[in-house]
């Protein structure tokens, strides 16, 4: 589990270095029976390719969609998913848990 998530961070770096727009999603909080632990990562590029997992498949689609926005405007966002959350997202976790996911852009190094 640990190795998987750390491999994702290496991949995020490699993607960013190759010039792709890259976003990193991280599970920052969980309640109830969330499928992936805090610290799990999903990396997404500007073409919609992704690796890793924040929910074992339940909400990846929504995170990938939001990641496109994050890559576009560079603003980090906190997303919340779960059956108990009625306000924002329609995509629920079938297991009944809730998760909070932080999505941020990997900013390329400034060329001087």
């Amino acid at each position: 589990m640990i190795s998987t998530d750390t491999d994702i961070l290496s991949l995020a770096e490699a993607w960013a270095r190759s010039g792709r727009g890259v976003a990193l999603a991280t599970v920052i909080e969980t309640w109830g029976s969330a499928p992936r632990p805090v610290g799990s990562h999903l990396v997404i590029d500007d073409a919609g390719n992704f690796q890793g997992s924040v929910s074992g498949g339940c909400v990846e689609g929504a995170v990938v969609e939001e990641a496109a926005e994050v890559i576009g405007d560079g603003k980090a966002r906190t997303l919340e998913f779960g059956v108990a959350d009625e306000t924002a997202w329609k995509v629920g976790l079938s297991c009944g848990g809730r998760i909070r996911v932080y999505v941020e852009r990997i900013a390329a190094e400034k060329a001087n």
Binding site: T6, E13, R17, I106
Partner: peptide
């Protein structure tokens, strides 16, 4: 996240 921070994190690991 700045790419330089991600690089440093990966390098430490």
């Amino acid at each position: 996240m700045e790419l330089s921070i991600l690089s440093a994190l990966n390098a430490e690991r």
